[in-house]
């Protein structure tokens, strides 16, 4: 297979785009897709201060590197969850990456916050992943607001977005369908949220990470129960193989013609948010979810296992 641009031997074949590229031309293709994704949805400009959530996976690191190459003002944020084995490995990857490329990094330590995930898991009476997700979102939002970042960026790619959209559609979840997308406006005290890799597949990001020599973290979290979207991703791989280009069409069609309709339908019953009385974080309750998790941890001293009452 020859590179479509320069006729050298191709190293990446992209059936979805009916094409293949050599290393240099692929990197150019990747850059253009990111730029197009930013411009098309007006995600941010060179005046924005962008906080990039860095998990240590290939998507978030690729996003960070590409945005900095494009001259955007980026700072990484890593949440150290204090999970033995996986957290130190992920943090090490992120720290070495930022050091190597001279990028700003903020690390928030959940151990120091009294929110180490193993403790949360030991003392909460529900699956830890939902609490863990809530804690991560809290610190992303809070750091963005406290440190005056104007945008919060995550490394979600087209496959992540498609799987989520498909799942929301199967349930006709109007609330989720009304605000899914690569661009969520600042609202109720939350920072603006963007997903600049929305035009790129997981495969494309993986090739980018490889070609750019990004060392990344793939030791799974010990609490991961096999994520819920894996099956949908498989279905879409089959569909895409039969009908190349379908994924991007489906997603773009949703953004242009689907989401506005759901957004109108959902407008009537918006919830009012006010500041958490403890920490000021926007919430629809008096005390926010993370402050309630802190309370639960305080009320159950270490070693007090067994039955717990959820308030």
């Amino acid at each position: 297979m020859k590179c479509k641009r320069c006729k050298e031997t191709a190293v990446v074949s992209l059936p979805s785009h009916h094409t293949g590229f050599c290393a240099d031309c692929f990197l150019l293709f990747f850059t253009r897709q990111v730029e197009r994704g930013i411009k098309e949805r007006k995600l941010f400009t060179h005046d924005d201060r962008i906080l990039v959530a860095l998990s240590g996976g290939k998507d978030s690191l690729s996003l960070m590197l590409e945005l900095s190459r494009l001259g955007y003002d980026v700072t990484g944020l890593h949440i150290d969850l204090a999970i033995p084995g996986s957290s130190p490995a992920a943090r090490g990857v992120v720290e070495r990456f930022c050091e190597k490329h001279g990028l700003n990094l903020i690390v928030k330590e959940m151990g120091a916050e009294g929110l180490a995930i193993p403790d949360v898991k030991a003392r909460l009476n529900r699956p830890v992943c939902s609490a863990c997700g809530k804690i991560k979102r809290y610190f992303f939002n809070k750091t963005a607001l406290d440190e005056k970042f104007t945008v919060l960026a995550t490394g979600h790619n087209l496959d992540d977005e498609i799987a989520r959209l498909f799942s929301n559609t199967l349930r006709w979840d109007v609330a989720y369908l009304s605000d899914q997308g690569p661009d969520l406006a600042a609202d109720g005290g939350f920072a603006r949220k963007v997903k600049p890799l929305w035009r790129l597949s997981e495969f494309e990001t993986a090739n980018y990470a490889f070609l750019m020599g990004i060392e990344h973290h793939y030791a799974p979290c010990p609490y991961s129960g096999g994520a819920s979207f894996t099956f949908y991703k498989k279905l879409w791989t089959d569909l895409e193989e039969e009908m190349p280009g379908r994924k991007l069409d489906f997603y773009q069609g949703f953004l242009e013609r689907g989401r506005p309709v759901f957004a109108r339908a959902d407008n009537e019953d918006g919830v009012d948010l006010s500041g958490c009385t403890r920490c000021g974080y926007p919430t629809s309750n008096e005390v926010c979810g993370v402050c309630r998790i802190r309370d639960a941890l305080r009320d159950k001293p270490v070693g007090a296992d067994g039955a717990e009452e959820a308030k």
């Binding site: 996976g57 290939k58 992540d160 994520a227």
Partner: peptide, 8 residues
């Protein structure tokens, strides 16, 4: 051969 589809 590195499988790159994350389970996330």
């Amino acid at each position: 051969i590195r499988i790159v589809t994350s389970s996330g």
